[in-house]
Every structure is written in C-alpha cells, then in structure tokens.
Nucleic acid binder design. Sequence first.
RNA 1: GGGUGCUUAGCUCAGCUGGAAGAGCGUCGCCUUUACACGGCGAAGGUCGGGGGUUCGAUCCCCUCAGCACCCACCA
Length: 924
Amino acid sequence: MDKAYSPAAIESRIYARWESLGAFKPAGVGPAYSIVIPPPNVTGTLHMGHAFQNTIMDALIRHRRMQGFDTLWQPGTDHAGIATQMVVERQLNAQGSSRVELGRDAFVERVWQWKRQSGDTISNQMRRLGASVDWSRERFTMDPELSRTVTEVFVRLYREGLIYRGKRLVNWDPVLKTALSDLEVVAEAENGSLWHLRYPFADGPGHVVVATTRPETMFGDAAVAVHPDDERYRALIGRRLRLPLTGRDIALIADTFVDPTFGSGCVKITPAHDFNDYEIGVRHGLPLLNVMTTDARLTDEVPAPYRGLDRFDARARIVADLEAQGLVERIEPHQPMVPRGDRSHAILEPLLTDQWFVRIAPLAQPAVRAVEDGRIRFVPEHWSGVYFEWMRNIKDWCISRQLWWGHRIPAWYDPHGGVHVGRDEDEARASGGIDPGVALRRDEDVLDTWFSSALWPFSTQGWPEPTREMAVYYPTSALITGFDIIFFWVARMIMMGLKFTGAVPFREVYVHGLIRDHDGQKMSKSKGNVIDPLDIVDGIGLDALLAKRTTGLMQPQMRPAIERATRTQFPQGIAAFGADALRLSFASLATMSRDLRFELARVEGCRNFCNKLWNAARYVLLNAEGDGGADHGAELEFSVADRWIRSRLAATLARVEAGFADYRLDAVAAALYEFTWHEFCDWYVESTKTVLQAQDAREAQKRGTRYTLVDTLETLLRALHPLAPFISEEIWQRARESAGVAGETIMLAVYPRATDLPSDPQAELEMAWVRQFVLGIRQIRGEMDIAPSRRIDVVLQNAAATDIALLDRNLKYLQRLAGIEVPRVLAPGEPAPIAAVALLGALEILVPMAGLIDPSAERERLAKRQRKAQADLQKLQAKAQNAEFVRNAPADVVAKDAARIAELQTEIGQLQRQAARVHALLAG
RNA sequence: GGGUGCUUAGCUCAGCUGGAAGAGCGUCGCCUUUACACGGCGAAGGUCGGGGGUUCGAUCCCCUCAGCACCCACCA
C-alpha cells in the first residue's frame, strides 16, 4: 500500500467494477426499501445541493442494501419545461435564430437534441460521487411510458371534473408569454411610486383622488371604490366619475375591501388587471376590460395615442399627460410588492386568458389527513406545519403553459369551440361524438412541469399497469428533498399518489437543509460563488476556477468582485480531495439545520481522516501477515485492549444505528470519526505495538491481537461504507483475505450491528484506568516540556491492591504509551520523593523532579488544578446542603454528587500536600 | 400582516426525556517515536443573545425583548 491515500487512483476503477457486478440492482429478496431520486433537470449539471442530496440518499440506500433489504434507488431526470426551453431559446438567439423562426416541431426536435447531448452530464457526475442508483431503470419524464401516465392522469381527472378549462385572471409572464402558477411567482418589495390621481366628477365640478401604483392600467378601470363607512366619501357613493384621458364614465362604489387609511382611501378598480379588483368586480358585476396584450403592450381598446405602447412607456406617457391636465395631485415614494417570474425574472402581469386548472380542494383533503394520521412522517417534524398551512389555503392549480417543450394537453377543439379530452384524438372524438369528417384542432398548450413530477413515484414504476415494481417498491420508503420544493413537489406528489394509487407515495420525508457558501450565501452563478462538486473531488487550479466562475456572466460588471473573492478564498485553487472526503463532509454537515454552510476546511479534515484510515489499515495489514483470521483454529488470547476495542466498536455501532434511524448522518459520521481516530488509532493501534513487538509475548496473545486488529478494521470498513464507499471498498479488498471473509464486494457485505459484538464493561473500566494513568503522565510531560524520547521514572504512592493488580496486568501498555520505566510502588508510610503528581482516584502517580522538572512550574500547575477542584467542590457542597435538593432530586443524582464531593475532597487534600512539599522545596 | 427557524469556544456547528458544557477547523507549546507531518503529545479558550418565570436544579421547559434568516399573504 502507498504511504498516502490517493483517491484518484482507485475511485473510477471501483465504480466500474460495482456496475459490472450489477451491485446496484435490487437484490430481489428481503423487505423492500426504495427511494426515487428527485429528478434533476435533464440538461443541467449537478451542483453542491444535488451532490449533498445524492450523498444522503446513497448512504441510506447502501446502509439498507447491506442490511439485506431489497433496495431500489430509482434514478431519472426531469424535462423541466420552462428552464430547458429557455436554455435552448437562448442558444438559438445567440445564433441569430429564434424559436418562432424554427417553428414548433423543429424547435422541439432541437430541444431533444440538446437533451441527448447533455443527458450524460448528470449521470457521469453521479457516478463520480459513487451514487449506487440502478442505472438500468433510468427514467425521463418525457419517456413514452411516463408521458402515457401523464395523459392517463389528465384524462381521469378531467372526467371526474377535477380538471377544468376557463377564462381566468392568471399570472402572466410577458417575456416567456405563458401563464404561471402562483408558486412560480416571487414577489419582492421594490422601489416605486404611489400616484395620486384626480378623477373628476362627470356631472359637476370637483374630483376624487385615486391612489395607484399602476397608472398604466387606468383604461381598464371599471369603477372607483371607497370604504362604505369612510366619512370623507360616504356622500359621494354612487356619483359618476369621468375617467381621465377618455370620455368614459365610471361609478364610485363602496366595498369593505378598501382600507381607508391607505393612500387616499379611494381605489381605482381594474378587474382585468388585478387579482383583488377581479374579486370586487365579480361582487359588483363590473365589466372586465382587458387593455393589455400578451406582451404587455396596451391594446387597441385604449385611446389612440397609447395603443401599442409598452406598459412602462404607457405609464410614463399617461402620467405626463395627466400632469399636463393638472390631474396629478402628488407622487409619493412607495415600495410595492412586485411579482416576478421565478425563471425569467420578468415582471408578471395579471392577465385574463383561457387556461386549464386542477380543482385542488378535493385532492388536498386526503393529503392533509395522510400527514395528520402519520402515514407520512416529516423529518424534522416541524415541516409538517408548513405543509398544513399551505394545504389549508391551497388554490386551484393553473397547469397549462404556453410553451412548446413539455407534455401537450390531450384536448381537442371542434370548429364550434367544443372541447374534447381523450387519451388520443380518436378517443377524444369518440367522447364528443364528433363525426370523423370534422377536423379537430389539438390544444397548443403543454402541462406545467410539476404536473409530471407529481406522478414520479408511480410513473417510474409502470403505473397504471399493475407491475411487479408497483407491488414491491411502491409506496417508496423515504423521500429526500429540500424545503424549497415542499409545495411545488412534495405536496403534489402526496395528492396525486393518494388519488391514483390509493396509497401514500412515501412513508417518510426527510427535509434537508440548503447548502450555502462559507459566508452563508446561497450559491449561484450570478454571485460567482458556486463550486462544482467534481472540482473538490478532482481538484482545480486557481486560473481554471476563475475562468469557470466568470465566463458567461449575466452581469459582467460583477466579474472583478467575483475574481477578488475567489482569489482570497482559494489562493491555490482547490486540492483534489476525492469523493469520499466530499461525501464525509456532506454527511457531517447533515444536521437538522435549515442552512448548511459549506467549508472547504471540513473537506480537508475529512480527507485527512481518509488518510488516517488508510494508514491505520497499512499498519493492520502489515502486521496481519495473512494470518489475522481466527479460522486457523489456533488458540487466541485476548488482551484487555482487544476486549476494550470490541466493546467500543459495539457502542459506536449503537450510535450509528441511532443516527441512521433519525436521518442524523452527522451523528453517524461523528461516531465513526471519533471511534476510528480517537479510539482505534490513538489507543488501540498503539497498544497493539506492545504485544506484537514484544519478544516475550505468547503466540496466542499475538494471534489474538492480530485477529482483533483485522477483525475490527474489517467491521469498521463495513460500518463506514455507506458514507465512504470507495476507500472502504479499496481497503476491504486488501483486508478480505486476512479477515477471512467471503464476498465480491463490501457493498453486498452485511452491515455490522452493535449486538454482533460483546459489550465489555470490565474491559472498559480497566482501559479507563490505563488511559487516565497515561494521560496523567503525558500532561506532566507536556507541561514540563519533557522530550517524548526521555523515559521517566515513576513512583506510586497510596496504591491500593487493585491499583497494583492493574499495574501488573497493564505494565507494558503504560511503559509504551507513557514512556516510563517500571514504576516503584511505595510501601505505606514510606517517604515519597519531591515530585510532580498526577492523580488517579486515591492513587498518586509521582514523577520525581530530579532535575527534570521545574518546581515553580509544578507549583503553578498544582495551584491551577486546586482552584478548579475548589470551585467544583463549592458548587456541589452548596447543592448538597440544600435540603430541597436532597428531598426532591432522585436518589442516584444525590448519591452521585456525594461521591463526587468525596473525590474532590481527596483530590484537594492530595494537591494541598503536594503543594506544601513543593513550596517547602522552593523556600528551602 | 401572519408563520417558522436560528442566536453555545476566534470560525463552522453538535448537545438525547432538564441532573458536572462537546467536536472539527484555527491558535499556542513540545516532537523527524519504523501506520500516518494529510502526523503524534500537551495546552489555552465559553456569564450557552438580554431579561423574567417554573423547578431542589435550566444551554434544554414557559413568557418577554433584541438581532439574523426564511416562508406565506389581496392593502391599491
């Protein structure tokens, strides 16, 4: 084995072997455990969030697979309608072409081309991270089978009256020229104005002042409203107003919606261009006057000078013209909530259009119940509250999009405008009894991407066919996802799953946090703070990293700042840390927190851990010499340390099991890290050297230790495998023979359980004594700057019979680990030398000063320890003297305190005596 | 306007049903000890955001204030 772990040399080879072994496929036996991947955009690349999420899913899947479950990790990708269409349109625009120029069929073909071209990017990235998905089952939301499922669901919902078509006010994106659902709207406060406009009375002098943020929609005004109780306007209700710039009259009406304290208390009502006004319009029977086109220009319905003007040009023109007529009372700065499209970032326009909707309330009810009654569990639990809140106020879902890339709506129109829905044109025709001679026109729209995503857990498993997959792997066991798509995706999957399969789509939802950069910022291309996960695996130079972050920026002016930040944070670029180090750092990051800050230093720490493990394995295998296994039938003798490390491994595995059960991969990682480094390496491996290198050790002892070394390592590798699949496999392959285990790959080996190993309290107690002894000596060494090479004399005072027995049994360990000569045990009453002291219960471990130790330094050390002990003692004594405490606290707590008080008193006595002697020495 | 989460060592974060404050990274000493300098040994460092309450006892439970972050919402 090489001296240092080098991931690059082994990772790809190992993954290829797993794949060729078919190790990712479900075993076909055992209880089912399944996860469907949240399908990433087919043309996208894997970002840190994906890598994090995949690491979690892979760890869960590998863990269950090793536990003997019939595991399916279902991979696939999403067609991501708007996002993908935008990318391809941008490509076309760059070539001086456009979607419209190409035409629908050619454009869609172009997108398919782009899909084929970039389709492997994500799967290649996932392979590099070690994702054990069953590639043979990879699905795409626009595969023929999945598209059939989409159509099937649409038709069934339509026939049940749960999908309807209608002219409604929707969120319209004038750039993409499509409707959007409420969820795709991001509203943020932006700087703007509140215009106070004078609307004159039609039938006499005077005016009212209307406050609006949208002067450009005034030609669509159908009324002006005031609050019915507003004293200022009460007498005016019912008067007619002359809409400025037009000859049209509108009424002054009363509606309780109006807030008298805002603006002028007088609102213009524009039912076709505002969601609230729409409601008011319905209440008052006002006409819907649409004055805007789909690209947000004014229509021909408005007065001539404004026709065809862009909405913001129109705004400026209208305000200027009103000003000229003295109709602008004042302009007040104001921060309205501006709705923008989440993809295009264009300002949206409420627009009256024909759209398809899902009637959602009947679907939401059962979905709420499934979470209420525990058929679905959210982890952490509080996310269910967020889910309930949204589901309670849910509104109908606009599912039609005026795009070309997606599932085309299976509806056809006859020449009279009749709508006919069917699985295909023939069925649609038949359903409407339309004569074959009559030409039907198919609906141009496609479905919201999330419509097909909502079906993903069962569309991937062959529904509506009664497949074996549906029977075995559905409902899936767990969904692993970010909180940002609880509404978009999780809620809709629950509704659709219950509706069409009668069962929940998953039993548990683990909602993980979002990966942020070191400063807590969301990672994004425009901020220039993204890190490609593979650049951490493979490493990247500073220049290449700078190039990656600064090319293709939407805002080129950000470039200098991005460069500066990148140079500061990664002066040397990024080193090649390997997939396991990245995965381990993701696991340790996976707390229940909502924001997860990613730090490269953590990856470095995990890389160091891999190297530590690697070298520990080198030591083990070097010493095992091929006969580590117990299967030779030779006698094995186990030392205290042998028994201790097994006991510690059992305790570690218990922590690991608890961590997996609670989705606490951070706890799993911490347990394994601590065991590997601070128990196995720091203590056990060191202790074995005394046995293996001793001339006088019995062969049975050596065999016992070799066996324990190899066996512990092999078990540890299996425990680590879900988090660090590559290095665990690599070492396992090398250790397999020594460990005497069978099997092609660690992937399919059995996951270790805490109960496989004996818990050994007696060995733990004895090792605790040894460790405390060694730590006491080391502390003196460290603080007195005694070279590690210098063996030191030790004298034991006040040694009990048990101490002497422990000393005898563990002398070799103590000598090696603490670097001491054989301690001299003082007889009772025998005078002790002046020494530095370490305490082990009543036992005093003395290191004679004898020129080694500076007495005043020792005096300081003793004083410090005394202060600490005194403080502890005082706190405990105050507690013990409190009668309430003694009466109310559980007996074991009181007893523990009492024991601790006794200990501290002894300790303080010992420290005081030592201090007195050192003091005398210094004084003399 | 409603809601949620967070505030613990210089930094990033753990801390199970309330019972002697932890890790990683960083810092400071010492060390080329034949698994590992991607290392070993030792050390320093915290009034657990402020205030109040419940309790024998609060980082943990309740109230309140402050700050940070996010989600939802129709105030033109």
